[in-house]
């Protein structure tokens, strides 16, 4: 009997088939929040603290949105943290030299996108695995960031810049949160409403099949890498705004937090599925855990251990999702 389109029936089927594994991040988020509310009370659940968490996770969330595209296409990008550092310095230097806010931001984004494109070219045209290309690029971008100012930080005096990209608020909402929302909405839109999103998933789901379907696999992979490059550069711009300076240490270790956020969010580590909202919730989850642990009085070393455990947990979830 051929299938007859019945929307109600499909809705019911869909509702009864919510996959706990793919949506685990939402359950985990709720559980962790409840745990901290009960153990920490007002110290956790205050407006100041919640806005604090939002501010601290914003930059990771923005990179996680772009990383979702890269991972969904079956690749990985380890260079995002270093690109953020480099872009923060490029923007700070450019502001110092030109005093032009718009030009400086564009130059920062351009540098990030260019590095992303280089990653993409090496991964697709030369055929070096994305893991190795971006591992190498992580070092190169970091080294460049240290080199251009001889490891010195570059302060940013431009008040407007610092307000727009870091410290400002709109109707009481931190501007970093607004930037995150803009990137998230754009990410969801591109992933689900444009052919590019479908092509990303097709390439990650079955690369040979995608090629046989007439999709320009190399181009899709390359564009995904450009997205993470640009998003990482934007992250660097926000770091610079928040700290009112460019500095080579910004973004250190972010690549792992970002990847953990994406995979925790339900995106398959090996490509073919994408959870853009999940990635941002994953980033929030990590932020909430970090914040709660600080209030609980854990030392920095203990926090790092917990963060490492989260990465392993995320990888384990990604693996078992694949085995199904």
């Amino acid at each position: 009997m051929p299938y007859k389109g019945n929307h109600m029936e499909r809705l019911i089927r869909g509702a009864s088939k919510i996959n706990i594994q793919e949506n685990i991040v939402y359950f985990a988020f709720v559980i962790v929040v409840i745990f901290f509310i009960f153990t920490l009370g007002d110290r956790f659940l205050s407006v100041v603290n919640i806005l604090n968490i939002a501010r601290q996770t914003a930059i990771i969330s923005i990179m996680a949105v772009a990383m979702t595209f890269v991972i969904a296409s079956g690749q990985i990008d380890l260079s995002v943290g270093s690109i953020a550092a480099l872009s923060s310095l490029v923007v700070a230097l450019c502001l110092r030299e030109t005093d032009s806010l718009v030009l400086s931001v564009l130059v920062g984004l351009f540098v990030g996108t260019l590095i992303g494109a280089t990653n993409g070219l090496l991964a697709t045209k030369v055929g070096v695995p994305a893991f190795l290309v971006t591992l190498g690029m992580m070092g190169i971008a970091k080294g460049l960031a240290m080199w251009i100012t001889n490891t010195m930080a570059v302060p940013i005096m431009d008040k407007d810049y610092n307000v727009i990209f870091g410290l400002g608020t709109v109707a009481g909402i931190p501007i970093l949160l607004i930037w995150t929302a803009v990137v998230l909405i754009a990410g969801v839109f591109v992933m689900h409403q444009t052919p590019f999103g479908k092509k990303i998933l097709a390439v990650g789901g079955n690369e040979t099949g995608a090629r046989y379907s007439g999709i320009n696999v190399e181009r899709v992979k390359m564009l995904a890498m450009c997205l993470t490059g640009a998003a990482a550069a934007f992250a660097g711009i926000l770091y610079a705004g928040r700290m009112q300076a460019g500095r080579f240490t910004f973004g250190e270790g972010d690549e792992l937090t970002v990847i953990a956020a994406v995979v925790l969010g339900g995106t398959n580590l090996y490509g073919g599925t994408a959870r853009v909202v999940g990635a941002v919730v994953g980033s929030l989850l990590i932020g909430v855990i970090n914040n709660g642990l600080i209030i609980l009085g854990l030392s920095v070393s203990q926090q790092i251990i917990v963060r490492g455990m989260i990465v392993i947990l995320a990888a384990a979830l990604g693996l078992s999702a694949r085995k199904r």
Binding site: A202, G205, A210, N268, G272, T273
Partner: peptide
């Protein structure tokens, strides 16, 4: 399975 379909994706996709 190898060249034709993405098995983890829906009929529609």
């Amino acid at each position: 399975r190898r060249k034709g379909l993405a098995l983890i994706h829906s009929v529609k996709d």
